[in-house]
């Protein structure tokens, strides 16, 4: 937290190295977030790039009131939603298998099983209503609280929790169906 504030402070005073540090620190998480929200790697890269460009252009007036990660996560979520709205149709593209990586690589056997499941899960995510997918992604990848998700979606906390739960239930049934096969 303090490190972010210092990086931001340096960046605001012209340090490009400080910006590079911010970029390297968060680009991976933001791409994962955007890719899971949009289900499309190219769109995800565009969205994250737009967020960083907007950030550098407005940094002079920028006032950090929470965490930098939280701020960037919210920006990605807003941009992703705008992107979805503009397209006016749901993206169903699945992120290519080659670029889906499993973060837990402790067991090679588990990795194979997980990869099969992850393919299905990734596809199932794109089939969810966007609001449910957004609630799940922001919660699990953006590490947002339900209160923050509710604010972002302009809904009550209860509704945010419901969207998360319904979405999760659907994903679980898809995965269970797959396991039975």
């Amino acid at each position: 937290m303090l490190e972010d504030r210092l990086l931001l402070w340096r960046f605001k005073r012209g340090s490009k190295d400080a910006f590079r540090d911010i970029y390297e620190k968060y680009v991976g998480d933001l791409l994962t977030l955007a890719a899971n929200l949009l289900g499309d790697e190219i769109c995800a890269e565009d969205v994250v790039q737009d967020v960083f460009i907007s950030f550098v252009e407005s940094v002079g007036k920028f006032r950090l009131t929470g965490s930098l990660k939280g701020y960037l996560t919210t920006c990605v979520a807003n941009r992703a939603r705008d992107y979805i709205r503009r397209r006016k149709r749901r993206q169903s593209a699945v992120i290519s298998d080659a670029e889906q990586v499993v973060s837990d690589e402790r067991s090679p056997v588990q990795l194979v099983i997980c990869s099969e499941e992850l393919r299905k899960l990734s596809h199932a995510m794109t089939e969810l209503p966007y609001e449910q997918r957004e609630a799940i992604v922001l919660r699990l990848h953006g590490e947002m609280r339900f209160r923050q998700i509710a604010e972002l979606q302009s809904i009550s906390i209860k509704t945010a929790q419901s969207r998360y739960r319904y979405g999760l239930d659907k994903l679980r049934s898809v995965l269970n169906g797959e396991v039975r096969k």
Partner: peptide, 17 residues
């Protein structure tokens, strides 16, 4: 499948550019 198992799987949906 328990809910937290599904949640853990979702967390593993990482994207690497």
């Amino acid at each position: 499948r328990p809910a937290d198992n599904t949640e853990n799987l979702i967390k593993k949906l990482r994207y690497k550019a």
